[in-house]
Amino acid sequence: MKRILLTLAVAGVLSSCGNNDTSKQAADQTETAHNATEHEEHGDHDGHGDHVASSVSGNTSVNGPVRKSDQASAILDGYLAMKDALASDNSAKAAASGEMMVKAFASFDRASLDPKQQASYDDTVDDAREHAEHIGTNSGKIDHQREHFDVLSKDMTDLIAVVGSDRTLYQDYCPMYNNKKGANWLSTSKEIKNPYMGSKMSTCGSMKTEIVPQ
């Protein structure tokens, strides 16, 4: 389906959280490794992050390249604005970005996709739209917005696999979020600005995958 160019940064994971605290790094390393095995055991089939985790042990899944396409550019704009807002603890701005995304979904040119793509698009967007809407109506409840952003980020990764992307994206990973269950997000810069932990632990996390549209 899509080939993600991976620069799987195991080293990046190691150096992710608390750059100046070696004992903590070691702990995070075990945590991440643990997460990877856990995901494998469960045989998760929706999170692309999990495929990446699997590739650590040599099970690289074969994915087609993400198409170069600007169809989803308004959706991505909204998502990335939301990511930045959450990273800077700005709940109202995250809500506004949610509304932006809802509008972008509404004006998306669905007819340009083939029937098979439409089916995956519908499946993903039904869910994504609901999360975006919900984040939009929950200004002031940033923790709750982040819970939905977690699932929305998975949806977005699946969405660009279908509709393509107009820019290079990085899939980043925060091992600490959700009681150390971990969560992914998408970003356009290599620099880590964690949307789950906010300014409290802004640089916590690591880049897992580089998604270069072709």
Binding site: D46, D123, T124, D126, D127, H144, E147, V151
Partner: peptide, 21 residues
């Protein structure tokens, strides 16, 4: 609900209860 949305809902149910909301 689609399978994807069912998963989302399950997750939201669990976190809403967990948060005491």
């Amino acid at each position: 609900y689609s399978p994807r949305r069912q998963r989302s809902k399950l997750k939201a149910m669990s976190s809403q209860i967990e948060d005491g909301a």
